[in-house]
């Protein structure tokens, strides 16, 4: 099956001499929901920019559904919808006009473009604001406007560069549902995000890029299965003065009401709670210290704290 996106030996050296990409190889299968993660400056936006023709590559090949951007650029572009990291619309234009104009650039007649714009603006909760200038929208609405604009020509591959940055939790969840529906309907999605919970929740496959090199490229399930241990945070009902001894578990006391316990992958949680009960320690609630993917991500990119 022809990949939705195929990068081979893709290199980018900027004029200032900085090498942003060191010959990366990547394939994204059609229909996938794919996460491209990496620390800031790792090369994610450069990669996306090259695929979307906003950045000139130095060498290598890029194919979108089999269309090479060197020999069949127009066909490749027609397959892609891009939601960039930064707002890139004319803030003085009305919302509807932005979406309809974008369809026009893909050769979609105005009448059909208006119908599609109505559909996507409705789905993304922007229809009531269609006559407003884009500058009047909130940050979350602007992000949704860029998604509507990217979808109006009904691309086979949707690339989202941090689409939920600065968006409140409720809107973020509604955007996740919308993107899941779009993906289920057959659109391949490539996502970069700062929120690793988002990637873990939405994406089936993942590549991690660091300093212009792909350091991991696998399925989300396989990656997460590599977790040897994770840390549970237990909120205690009564305070503790000393760290309790729990055989088989590494334990630390964050404060007198909070216990952190490292649980290995093959450990039995019941054993932990049995040990706690035996010592009369009551647990009010528990949670994971960090998102599982976040823990792995930090390990893979050499302990850098900043993600995506």
């Amino acid at each position: 099956m022809t990949p939705a996106l195929s990068l081979h030996n893709l290199t980018k050296v900027y004029k200032n001499g900085i090498t942003a990409l060191h010959g990366i190889d990547l394939e994204v299968a059609p229909g996938d929901f794919f996460a491209l993660l990496g620390p800031n400056g790792a090369g994610k936006s450069t990669t996306i920019g090259i695929v979307a023709s906003l950045v000139n590559k130095t060498s290598g090949t890029v194919q979108v559904f089999g269309h090479d951007i060197d020999t069949d650029l127009a066909a490749a572009k027609a397959c892609i919808g891009l939601v960039p990291q930064e707002f890139n619309f004319n803030i003085f234009e009305p919302v509807m006009e932005i979406v309809v104009s974008q369809a026009g650039y893909y050769g979609i007649p105005r009448r059909l473009a208006s119908e599609r714009a109505e559909r996507y603006l409705n789905q993304l909760g922007l229809w009531e604001r269609r006559h407003d200038q884009a500058r009047m929208l909130s940050g979350g609405m602007k992000r949704r406007l860029m998604i509507a604009r990217a979808l109006v020509h009904e691309p086979r591959l949707l690339i989202l560069d941090e689409p939920t940055a600065g968006v409140d939790i409720e809107i973020r969840h509604s955007m996740w549902s919308f993107l899941t529906e779009i993906n289920a309907a057959g659109t391949t999605i490539i996502l970069t995000t700062h929120y690793l919970e988002e990637a873990e929740r939405l994406c089936r496959n993942i590549a991690i890029i660091d300093q212009g090199r792909i350091v991991e490229n696998t399925s989300m399930r396989q990656l997460l299965s590599r977790m040897n241990a994770h840390t549970l945070v237990l909120d205690l009902v009564r305070p503790l003065d000393v760290v309790p001894a729990l055989p088989g578990f590494a334990v630390s006391l964050t404060d007198d009401h909070t216990l952190e316990v490292e649980v290995s992958r093959d450990a039995n949680i019941n054993t932990l709670f049995a040990a706690l009960s035996a010592q009369g320690i009551e647990v009010g609630s528990l949670r994971n210290k960090t998102n599982r993917l976040e823990e792995l991500f930090i390990r893979l990119v050499g302990g850098k704290e900043e993600a995506a």
């Binding site: 023709s53 906003l54 960039p84 890139n88 619309f89 004319n90 932005i98 104009s101 650039y105």
Partner: peptide, 18 residues
Amino acid sequence: YSAKFQHNIEEMLVAPVP
């Protein structure tokens, strides 16, 4: 220049318009 400054020139650059 405004289209460059606001980056909305990218709307055309990503599309297959020659």
